[in-house]
Computed example of a mutant assay.
Amino acid sequence: MTQMKIADDEIKGQDWGIPFIYTMGFVLLVVFYIIEWYFLGCYGPPNPSDRKQLLSELANHPGLQDSIYFSIITSTTLGYGDLAPLTGGAKMLASTQALTCSIYMATGLAILLTKRRDPVKQ
């Protein structure tokens, strides 16, 4: 097995603009979802026992910290189980967020691996 050596000048010649722009796009995507969750506010403890509890959860507007937390655990598809979308529209938004962020992360990983495998020659 041969070992590949990459010289410092090859690393300096790589285009780091695309990964940077990609990372900033992901950050903006998550910020967009945080803002959307903050104004939508249709999430809370999972499985409310009755309609009265569901309505009280929807009436208590979650704060910005909860919106950030819920958006990040949804984006990373981690899902601790302490918060869940409560309405049909919120469930659609959460599944769309999980899907778009997963596709975005997978595409970014593919771009970075391709850049690493095929360094740009000057």
Rank of each mutant, 00 (worst) to 15 (best):
Y22V: 06
L28D: 02
L109S: 09
S67I: 01
T76Q: 04
S75Q: 03
L58Y: 08
G63M: 09
M24R: 04
I72N: 03
L55D: 13
W37M: 03
G108Q: 09
S67L: 02
Q3D: 12
N60D: 15
N47Y: 07
W16T: 11
E36S: 10
T100D: 08
V31C: 03
V30G: 02
Y22G: 10
T87L: 08
A7Q: 08
P19Y: 11
L112C: 09
R117I: 03
S75R: 04
L99S: 15
V31S: 04
S95H: 03
S95M: 08
C101Y: 06
G44R: 03
L28W: 03
M1F: 14
T2W: 11
I35D: 03
I72H: 02
M105H: 12
A106R: 09
H61S: 03
S95D: 04
T76L: 09
E36M: 14
G17D: 01
K12T: 10
I18K: 08
R116S: 07
Y104S: 14
Q122F: 13
S49R: 14
I103M: 15
S102T: 05
A110P: 04
E36Y: 07
Q53P: 04
Q122D: 05
M4P: 09
S102Y: 13
Q3M: 13
Y69A: 02
T100A: 07
I103P: 08
F20N: 01
Y43A: 00
L83M: 08
S67F: 02
A59E: 14
I34H: 03
L28F: 12
E57G: 11
T23I: 08
T114R: 13
A106Q: 06
L58E: 10
T87K: 08
K12R: 14
Q65H: 07
Y43L: 00
T96R: 06
G79M: 01
I11R: 06
Q3K: 14
T87H: 10
V27N: 01
G89I: 02
P62Q: 02
T76D: 03
D50C: 08
I18R: 11
L83Y: 08
K52N: 12
A7E: 05
T107I: 15
K5E: 12
D66T: 13
Q53V: 15
L64K: 11
S102N: 13
I35H: 01
D66E: 15
W37L: 04
R116G: 07
Y22A: 07
C101F: 06
G88E: 08
P48D: 07
Y43N: 00
E57M: 14
M24P: 02
T23D: 06
G79I: 00
T76R: 01
E36N: 12
Q97G: 10
Y104I: 04
M4C: 12
G81K: 01
T114Y: 12
Q65S: 07
K5V: 14
S75I: 05
L99A: 15
T100K: 04
T2E: 11
R116M: 14
Y69S: 03
K115I: 10
M24N: 09
H61M: 05
R117H: 08
M1P: 14
G88R: 09
R117A: 09
Q97Y: 05
S49D: 15
S49G: 11
T114S: 12
T96V: 10
S102L: 15
K121G: 03
Y104N: 12
